[in-house]
Simulated assay, not measured.
Amino acid sequence: MATTAELLRANLHQVFGRDAALRRPAIEASFAAEATFTDPEHATQGWDGIEQTAAAFLDAAPADFVFVEDGPIYTGTGSGALPWAFGPAGAPVVHGIDIITVRDGKIVALNTLVHQ
């Protein structure tokens, strides 16, 4: 069973990573089938919705933009948070934080907050 920190990293680096072949297996390994994902612009539910959201977001971004960890991971009982940055390597243009709720070793809710 994955730790909360491992789930946070899998989401950032595989689900929202540039290797599309890793995306669906990472989603199914890390998220409950009915998981929700909410960011400042919309919300979705389930593996298909999460996969489509990640793909659409990355397809719309410049090819050299990547997510990187931007601070320590925080974990608690059934929850965790990971600060991130997004943009060209070494020159991020957006900062945010992913907050997850975990049940039975899977993410059941992912909330993304963006620095304004």
Rank of each mutant, 00 (worst) to 15 (best):
T3C: 02
T3L: 00
A5F: 01
L7P: 02
L7N: 03
L8P: 00
L8R: 01
R9G: 10
R9L: 14
R9V: 12
N11A: 06
N11F: 07
L12C: 00
H13E: 15
Q14H: 13
Q14Y: 10
Q14A: 08
V15R: 02
V15S: 03
F16V: 02
F16H: 06
R18D: 04
R18F: 04
D19P: 05
D19C: 06
D19E: 08
A20E: 12
A20C: 09
A21I: 01
R23D: 08
R24F: 13
R24I: 14
P25V: 08
P25A: 11
A26N: 01
I27Y: 09
I27K: 08
I27Q: 09
E28A: 04
E28Y: 06
A29S: 12
A29C: 11
S30Y: 08
S30M: 10
F31N: 12
F31K: 13
A32F: 09
A32N: 11
A32S: 12
E34F: 14
E34C: 13
A35R: 10
A35S: 13
T38I: 13
D39T: 05
P40K: 01
P40C: 01
P40I: 01
E41M: 14
H42N: 15
A43L: 10
Q45T: 14
Q45K: 15
Q45S: 15
G46Y: 01
W47Q: 04
W47I: 02
W47F: 07
I50T: 05
I50Q: 06
I50A: 06
E51G: 12
Q52R: 13
T53L: 14
A54C: 10
A54S: 08
A54R: 09
A55E: 15
A55K: 14
A56S: 15
D59Y: 15
A61G: 11
P62G: 02
A63K: 14
A63C: 12
A63M: 15
A63L: 14
F65A: 09
V66S: 07
F67I: 03
V68W: 10
V68A: 13
D70G: 09
D70L: 05
D70Y: 04
D70C: 05
D70I: 04
G71I: 04
Y74L: 11
T75E: 06
G76E: 00
G76P: 00
G76C: 01
G76W: 01
G76V: 00
T77W: 08
T77G: 11
T77L: 08
T77I: 09
G78F: 00
G78L: 00
S79Y: 10
S79F: 12
S79R: 11
S79C: 12
S79A: 12
G80V: 03
G80I: 03
G80K: 03
A81V: 03
A81C: 10
A81R: 02
L82Q: 07
L82V: 03
L82E: 05
P83Q: 02
P83A: 00
W84A: 05
W84Q: 06
A85M: 09
A85E: 07
G87M: 07
G87T: 04
P88A: 15
A91L: 07
A91G: 06
P92D: 02
P92N: 03
V93I: 13
V94F: 14
